[in-house]
Design a protein around this nucleic acid. Sequence first.
DNA 1: GTTCCTAAATTAGTATGGCAGTTGCACTGT
DNA 2: ACAGTGCAACTGCCATACTAATTTAGGAAC
Lengths: 233, 233
Amino acid sequence: MTQKESDPRTAVPMRQRVHDTIRDHIISLDWEPGLRVSEKDVAEQLGVSRSPVREAFIRLSEEGLMEIRPQSGSYVSEISFDKVYESLMLRRALEMAVAAEAAEKRTAFDLVRLNDLVADQVAASEAGDRARFFELDQQFHRALTEIARMPSAVRLIRMIRGAVDRVQRMRISRGESRHVQVIEAHRAIVDAIEARDAAAASAAMDAHLNCVELFAQIIRSPEVREYVTPRAS
Amino acid sequence: MTQKESDPRTAVPMRQRVHDTIRDHIISLDWEPGLRVSEKDVAEQLGVSRSPVREAFIRLSEEGLMEIRPQSGSYVSEISFDKVYESLMLRRALEMAVAAEAAEKRTAFDLVRLNDLVADQVAASEAGDRARFFELDQQFHRALTEIARMPSAVRLIRMIRGAVDRVQRMRISRGESRHVQVIEAHRAIVDAIEARDAAAASAAMDAHLNCVELFAQIIRSPEVREYVTPRAS
DNA sequence: GTTCCTAAATTAGTATGGCAGTTGCACTGT
DNA sequence: ACAGTGCAACTGCCATACTAATTTAGGAAC
């Protein structure tokens, strides 16, 4: 694990860096679901003590990415269809609220920002830059939370995001994409926000994050099926 | 802090008990917003070491009830109107999703359970048992999450609940109540669930947890105004 | 009296040690 | 061959020790 930066203002706690590192391993499926990991081993591997590792484990278990069995062992969580579907629903619900509130609070400046993001997405799509498109998609949703002034919403979304990110990663690496639909959906959301129509913004987000459709796409991926436990809750 | 139980199956981690204890202090305003608390002092006061206290602090800070400033000190979070309003919106969004899903998945058995809960609430209201009514209200919403099979939803709701619970506590101790409206709203939700009408269930929950109205009631309480910082984000 | 600087006290962050519960495996008896 | 049992290694939980950054109090200079 990298040494702490010299500038204390930019210093990020070790437990945070350990958390992010482990999260990457889990999301990228470098650590497969069900894998047993121990505080001690991870601490040694990262060159830190068990305290920050332990705190990272606790946080990851609260995010549903790990499971801690006291006095027994810690494991990478299994992926279940039910959990993925629930996470999709919850994220949609939160993002709908964010979109509605953004429509209420948006300024002229915010509109420019959103339109620029959509334009960049069009450019990234035409350039075939998949990673850039994905990053801009995240920025778009993040921008909405900032416009709506709902910082807690991002915290909550982050809490449930892990479950779907693991399966999403598989699909991205396989090359599936629906850039056109995504861009159209974002345009509809921006239009509703421009009109200050909270209900329309919420509805547009609802359509954008349609659980049933997204879920169907996910479970069709053979890679996903391989990893997901068939019918666990 | 009480000693660990002899039965390991019912043993609850110390950090959990410390967390709950501190949370009670904060919610009940026994520890006022802005109060400085140190890991060391709390550990001595509860008769445990710093480790579980520290882990409880971290979790409480993730719930927005505490604020940890590295190498400096830990404080009970201030209450801000913006945070309370945001929490109300997010909770409504989550509960709407839960209600909609409950309408899809409900069984005949679930209907009996919900109707019984509402009937008990009527009885508690007529008996003037405010605490019991409050408890049944919580049970009602908890039952919905179980019917919808959405365990992550309760985790998320718990994460944001703290902010409103602190101000809610003031209003309850003051004796304000709208039992009739609450019961009517719960009836409407149960009816929609009985009809398996997800949209209606969601709409009924939306009306039940109307942010604007709830927020208006909250900020009218003089006790709340006294504690809440005027215009912080 | 005010300002600035220094040093000591306090804080959370991290490292390490000891403990009790859990697990798995070798051993034993049948 | 197999079921039961006890032991040993391993695990995460909690306690303690140490570190580094921040705050604060006190005194010196003006």
